[in-house]
Design a protein around this nucleic acid. Sequence first.
RNA 1: GUCAGGAUGGCGGAGUGGUCAAUCGCAACAGACUGUAAAUCUGUCGCCCUAACGGGCUCCCCAGGUUCGAAUCCUGGUCCUGACA
Length: 265
Amino acid sequence: MNKILVICGPTATGKTALAAQFARVFNGELISADSRQVYRGMDLASGKDRPDVPIWLYDVVAPDEEFSVSHWVRLARTAIADIIKRGKLPIIVGGTGLYINALLHPFETIDIPPNKALRKKLYKLSVSDLQKMVTRGDINDSDWNNPRRLIRKIEIKKFQPRRPADLQAFDYLIIGLSASLSVLDTRIDERLKKRLRQGMKEEIMSLLKTYKKELPSMTAIGLNEHAYARRQLTWFKKQTDIHWFDIRSETCADDIELLVRKWYT
RNA sequence: GUCAGGAUGGCGGAGUGGUCAAUCGCAACAGACUGUAAAUCUGUCGCCCUAACGGGCUCCCCAGGUUCGAAUCCUGGUCCUGACA
């Protein structure tokens, strides 16, 4: 079966660097699993490292274009097929857990597109009005007051859910890179300082000037990366098939390489 | 030095006699998550006990006072800010 290696984990753990290293060792190519790095022009803001190995799914859309898991999975599958065809190892690397999950475990509502007209109407409604259109049991408690999810639920109702067409399954190995929150926080702070020095603010300003209007891709300006890392950990924590490694361990990279080697050869 | 304004929980900032352990925002902590995911949403957030309902304690710069009752009123301190010197 087709093998793909996945390297995930919270932000600021050095995923890309490690993935690039493995790409060299195992003759692979990278595929970024990051919901912001797909946008052109957001280099510093989205933390695009440019390794000296091929990396896919950077800069695939303009900042004002629509993009979502669905698009990403499609592109990722195309990239994977291409890489495999050339006899190389696809290495998925990134911190957007939903994307990775959707690639590995396709779900049936993923390709139901947004209904613009319907959304426009629904966005004007209050949360309690939206709730009247959804069955309580159809949505989890935490999302009962979440307008986006409520609207999405209503939107989906109008469609017949269908199993995604016979999608190719993968033989995958997932490596998780992590560290304690306090370690991550200091790494995040240092990285942010560096990016600001490199001109991150200017990059954002010029993007805003170019596109003026609010960009779906720019909702994260003024973001709180500490909280973000925390949320990523919450998500990844419950994925059961990740092999975790602590980046502070001296032998981290070697341990991982050993595991990958065992799986790959 | 004089005049004016102000000191509230990690921060910002409401409240100006009782229903105040004190609205709200941020941060923090825990959680959810399936076409916006760096997003969106839920819960906790003075201390202690309880599985929970609930209960106890200490609180709004400090010290006194008024009052049945004070974060809120009065007096005196201390510190901060703006204006005049």
